[in-house]
Amino acid sequence: MIGVLLFAALIVLRGLVLARTRGSVPCRLRQGSGSWRSGVARYADGELHWIPLIGVRLRPRHAIARRGLVVSDRRPLDDDLYAIDCGPVSLAMSADALTGFLAWLESAPPSAYLDVA
């Protein structure tokens, strides 16, 4: 019983550390027509790393490269979130995080191909 509680406490602590890490923003991710999963997005070396909020590993589950990224659709969701479709995945984030994401996309080197709808 104590082991289960300790494991649960470590998972919660991991989520808090991820959410408060500098350069990280809360972000939901959906693959295809699946359900939204909560996590944290972090910008690193020309990629957006998405790490699930609940889990054991600290490594990113998805790495979305900025080079050649196509944002095909933007739409408002409930709960003051905005969804953007980026190829095989969709991301949902707050208006402030979306502004930062689009600025990150636009700040790519001139040789990168970008298409923002």
Rank of each mutant, 00 (worst) to 15 (best):
P60K: 01
R67H: 14
S72P: 06
A65R: 11
L102Y: 10
I84F: 09
D79R: 10
R74N: 07
A95H: 12
D85T: 13
G100C: 06
T99N: 10
A95K: 11
D79Q: 12
A95Q: 11
G55M: 04
D96E: 14
V70P: 01
A83R: 13
L105S: 04
I51S: 00
G68A: 11
A97H: 08
P88E: 09
I64R: 00
D85P: 03
P76F: 08
A63M: 08
R57A: 09
A97S: 12
I84P: 01
V71F: 12
A95I: 09
L91N: 03
L98F: 15
A92Y: 06
L102W: 09
R66V: 02
L58A: 02
L77P: 12
I84E: 08
W104N: 06
I51N: 01
Y82L: 11
R75M: 10
S72L: 12
L102V: 15
V71C: 13
M93S: 08
S107N: 11
W104A: 05
H62G: 02
E106S: 15
V56A: 14
S94H: 07
R61T: 01
D79E: 11
E106H: 15
Y82K: 06
S107E: 13
V70E: 07
L69W: 03
R61C: 01
I64C: 01
P52W: 01
E106Y: 14
M93P: 05
D96R: 13
C86Q: 03
S94I: 02
I51T: 14
I54Y: 05
I54A: 04
R61L: 01
L69S: 05
V56E: 06
D85S: 11
D96N: 12
R59N: 11
R61N: 02
M93D: 10
I84K: 04
S94R: 13
G100R: 09
S72G: 05
L81G: 14
P52K: 04
I64D: 06
R66H: 03
C86N: 02
A63I: 02
A83N: 11
L98E: 05
G68N: 08
A83P: 10
D79F: 11
S90R: 09
A63Q: 12
L102T: 08
A97C: 04
I51G: 01
I51D: 00
G87D: 09
D78S: 14
R57D: 06
D80C: 04
A103K: 12
L58T: 00
R61A: 09
V56W: 15
L102S: 05
V70Y: 08
W104P: 03
A103F: 05
I54P: 00
Y82S: 10
R66N: 05
L105E: 02
D78P: 09
A63C: 15
S72A: 10
I54T: 03
F101S: 00
R57L: 13
Y82P: 00
Y82E: 14
A63R: 15
V89N: 01
V70F: 08
A63Y: 03
E106A: 15
L77M: 15
L102P: 06
V56I: 14
A103N: 08
R74S: 12
A65V: 15
P52G: 05
P76I: 01
A83W: 05
V71D: 04
I51Q: 03
I84V: 15
C86T: 15
W104M: 03
D85Y: 00
P52R: 06
R67C: 06
M93E: 10
A95D: 13
G68Y: 03
W104I: 07
T99G: 15
V56G: 07
L81V: 02
I64Q: 02
A65M: 06
